[in-house]
């Protein structure tokens, strides 16, 4: 009897959920997910500061004032309120350079993740849909890509081709697609054997049509999760390249480049390194937390609590 009571109670909760549309369920999960709210909120703040910050504060990241070089931030003795975070070795406002750096990081992160998604999802869907020798060929390409030393190759190509934002985006994107492929392939394999795909084939839909209209929309949840996490990976890759001097070139303020420029002042002006590093860390943490959150939210198995 007790068992029956539990069962009906359980059924009742289920029914409440069933009344909601999938979008409503997701929104409710998003509202209750602390990690997602924190990550998304932090990301929004960083993006807002990066886009509108320099305009509101009326600061230029390129304007030099050689009489005011290497000023410390305001909370350290010697800092002035004109430059909240001090100035760099050329007397440029450090706050403006860090805020501008957010734009560079986000543009490159999103751009590179888009390129990676294009390559990985295309190969993954084709491999999962056709299977057989096509799958084996794709698997071989995947093994080759995994074995390549990504950073080393990226450095070489960017240096030889000539560094620019566009080249950096293309190179990082072209080297970060393996996760997209693996996820898209396994999901496509699973969906391919479902009845509605067979039905679509039976009524004469072309293979391309099935891949685009029946399979691709159902991969979206998982791809969005990978996309978010890959944005974080791409941002860190760009910072590494710029730090090593084979990425974004001066005077463009990239966070990796700011850290490289501050490296010589390690002993006397450590904030030149600490501040852009914190910015980089916060941006990547917020993106990763949002990605983990989206994974939980879009997973139909996860609980609502």
């Amino acid at each position: 009897m007790q068992f029956l009571q539990k069962f009906t109670a359980f059924g009742k909760i289920k029914k409440d959920l069933r009344d909601m549309t999938p979008v409503e369920v997701m929104l409710r999960k998003a509202r209750l997910h602390k990690g997602f709210k924190f990550g998304a909120g932090l990301l929004l703040i960083i993006a807002f500061l990066g886009v509108f910050g320099p305009m509101i504060l009326n600061l230029s990241p390129y304007e030099q004032d050689l009489t005011r070089r290497l000023l410390p931030p305001v909370w350290i003795e010697g800092g002035v309120w004109d430059h909240w975070l001090g100035t760099d070795g050329n007397g440029r406002d450090y706050l403006a350079r860090i805020l501008f750096g957010a734009r560079i990081s986000i543009i490159i992160g999103v751009g590179a993740a888009c390129i990676g998604m294009l390559i990985g999802v295309t190969l993954g869907v084709i491999a999962g849909f056709f299977g057989g020798w096509v799958d084996q060929v794709v698997n071989f390409i995947l093994t080759c890509q995994l074995a390549l030393p990504g950073l080393l190759l990226a450095m070489t190509i960017v240096f030889l081709v000539g560094p620019s934002i566009f080249v950096v985006i293309m190179v990082i994107g072209a080297l970060h697609w393996t996760l997209f492929l693996v996820v898209a392939r396994s999901a496509t394999k699973r969906i391919r054997s479902l009845d509605y795909v067979t039905a679509a084939e039976a009524i004469g839909a072309s293979k391309l049509q099935i891949m685009l209209t029946d399979i691709l929309p159902n991969l979206m949840n998982q791809i969005v999760v990978i996309f978010t996490l890959e944005v974080g990976v791409a941002i860190l890759s760009e910072a590494s390249l710029s730090f090593l001097g084979v990425g974004i070139q001066p005077p463009t303020p990239s966070w990796g480049l700011l850290i490289a420029e501050g490296k010589d002042a390690l002993f006397y002006q450590p904030w030149l390194i600490i501040l852009p590093g914190i910015a980089l860390f916060l941006l990547v943490v917020s993106i990763n937390m949002m990605g983990d959150g989206i994974r939980d939210i879009t997973d139909p198995e996860s609980s609502v609590e």
């Binding site: 910072a239 450590p270 590093g277 990547v284 990763n288």
Partner: peptide, 22 residues
């Protein structure tokens, strides 16, 4: 784990140098 994933490698190196070597 989450922090270690988001910290850029070269920055961690420089921070450790500032803290434990300088």
């Amino acid at each position: 784990a989450v922090s270690a994933q988001a910290i850029p490698n070269f920055w961690l190196g420089l921070m450790l140098i500032i803290l434990l070597a300088v």
